[in-house]
Write a protein that binds this DNA or RNA. Structure first.
Length: 487
RNA sequence: GAGCCGUUAGCUCAGACGGUAGAGCAAUUGCCUUUUAAGCAAUGGGUCAUUGGUUCGAUCCCAAUACGGCUCACCA
């Protein structure tokens, strides 16, 4: 807290004024005034008074006059203060207000000699006193730690930050509209699970006191959403948070937002088509282009997008033939040549996927669907009819980043139970990311899940792409930060 | 979890063979009736992240810690 501000605050109180007024209703935002008189030769009404309220961003004083810049949610306008035009009391209040405070003014309009539309204040009210100085007006707030920890300051001072979050809001609205228009129902399923499932990740663990039981923050909503398809909600989506107890970096935050959707009587090819349609629609809506500038990359979203099997991608980007990874021993040899550390529990499928990640993933700049994932790493996907070791599954990569994952849903309860059992075995062998046996989910499948395809898409990463941000922290209002003791 | 780098005034940044620091903006006080990074003058403001060590003396060298950034690992 700044002493000089506190003193001014106290002076206002001594004058009998509340530095934190209970109410100040404003009928129209600043943008209304700006739009009504947008042209320099618009005639300004001499006797009509206009009101505006906002935070003082700048103050330029000249003895008995001053110019203030104030901002509300809609825009910025200049206010002209002249001692002779205000009551003695209002001018005194003006002298006690400073950059950062919220004020309300009323007065007539005029243009300065540079043509700037300005309110000539006849009434001046201080609405909220700020007790801390704002960061510097010209350089703004650059320190990334402060920007993330005190996002409110970042938003006050750095204008483009708000734009990112406005875009994020638009993107999410468009996604909801897209699925709703395709006949999908939005639902909310539990965030606290008694079993870990639906993805491979370490969970956060919490405890329910009254019931004296451990609960896990969900790592994915998948198994609940498919129960809903069993129940007849054949097109369903959830757009909400997942929690994974993993590392933090520019592409990972412990809590992140995903959309998952499930569609009966569709298959993974249809989902890939939907994703192409959705993402190109978003790019046009948000950026008015099917080309994205992302860092020093240009990403071309023009349809159709490339679709490669995992083996084809390894061949194309790693120059490793499909024969070279066709058996466990051969694949192991290739992986060793690539200096991949192989765990004894891995089968051929896992090794091949590691090879893919090593040689191809980061090279997938334009959107590319990788299909035919190994069954070994796809415990919830349907096997391919012509090759039971592979699954009807895709992942979408853009700018070297995994954006989406989808597949034909395994709906054979007997097969699913066997795959869960394998997960349980891995878990007992020490794999903290393996799923648990979910007997109720098996029971649901026993009642019958129609042929269904489902997918998930990372909303934060999608927003990163569409707003040209290289760190997930720049698209999260309050990214995860370590606790600090002192303020 | 590992490696490298960083942490100096409210903000943005300088700086010092090791002899306890400076600018601009912000603030305070003057002057100023059309400025817009307003101007001019003066003033105040710092445990140089924290804790140890080396030294006559450390903000500077060394170590540890905290927090952050980048890279790596982890993230089917």
């Amino acid at each position: 807290m700044d002493q000089h501000r506190l003193e001014k605050c106290n002076k206002l109180r001594e004058m009998g004024l509340n530095p934190y007024v209970n109410s100040h209703i404003i009928s129209s935002p600043i943008s209304d005034i700006l739009e009504r008189f947008s042209k320099e030769d618009d005639v300004l009404p001499e006797n009509e008074e206009f009101s505006a309220a906002g935070r003082i961003l700048a103050k330029r004083e000249f003895g008995k006059t001053a110019f203030l810049t104030i901002r509300d949610r809609s825009g910025i306008i200049q206010v002209y203060i002249k001692k002779a035009l205000l009551s003695e009391n209002d001018f005194e209040v003006y002298t006690l207000s400073e950059v950062g405070d919220f004020i309300g003014v009323q007065g007539t309009l005029f243009r300065t000699k540079t043509g700037e539309l300005t309110i000539r204040a006849f009434q001046y009210r201080l609405l909220t006193k700020a007790l801390r100085d704002l960061p510097e007006k010209f350089h703004g707030l650059k320190d990334v730690e402060t920007r993330y920890r005190q996002r409110y300051l970042d938003l006050i001072v750095n204008n483009d930050v708000k734009d990112v979050f406005i875009k994020r809001s638009q993107i999410i609205k468009e996604i909801r509209d897209f699925f709703t228009n395709h006949g999908f129902i939005e639902v909310e399923t539990p965030m606290m699970h008694s079993l870990v499932g639906g993805a491979a990740a370490k969970p956060f663990i919490t405890h329910h006191n009254a019931l004296d039981m451990s609960l896990y923050l969900r790592i994915a909503p998948e198994l609940y959403l498919k129960r809903l398809v069993v129940g007849g909600i054949e097109r369903v989506f959830e757009l909400n948070r997942n929690f994974r107890n993993e590392g933090v970096d520019t592409k990972h935050n412990p809590e992140f937002t995903m959309i998952e959707w499930y569609m009966a009587y569709a298959d993974y090819n249809i989902l890939m088509d939907m994703i192409e349609e959705l993402v190109t629609h978003l790019a046009k809506k948000i950026n008015n282009s099917e080309k994205l500038e992302y860092g020093n990359l240009t990403i071309d979203l023009t349809r159709p997008w490339a679709r490669l099997t995992m083996a084809q991608a390894i061949e194309k980007y790693g120059n490793i033939s499909q024969d070279e990874i066709s058996t466990y021993e051969k694949a192991k040899q290739v992986a060793q040549n690539l200096k991949i550390t192989i765990d004894a529990s891995w089968g051929q499928g896992r090794i091949v996927s590691e090879i893919f990640e090593a040689v191809a993933e980061e090279k997938l700049i334009n959107p590319t669907f990788i299909i035919d994932y190994p069954k070994e790493i796809s415990p919830l996907s349907k096997s391919k009819e012509d090759n039971p070791e592979l699954t009807d599954r895709f992942e979408l990569f853009v700018a070297g980043m995994e954006l989406s994952n989808g597949f034909n849903e395994l709906n054979d309860p007997i097969d699913q139970k066997e795959r869960f059992q394998k997960q349980v075995d891995s878990r007992n062998a020490g794999d903290e990311e393996a799923c648990m046996m979910d007997e109720d989910y098996i029971r649901a499948l026993e009642y019958g899940l129609p042929p269904t395809a489902g997918a998930g898409m990372g909303i934060d990463r999608l927003v990163m792409l569409l707003t040209n941000k290289q760190s997930i922290r720049d698209v999260l209002l309050f990214p995860y930060m370590r606790n600090i003791d002192t303020i």
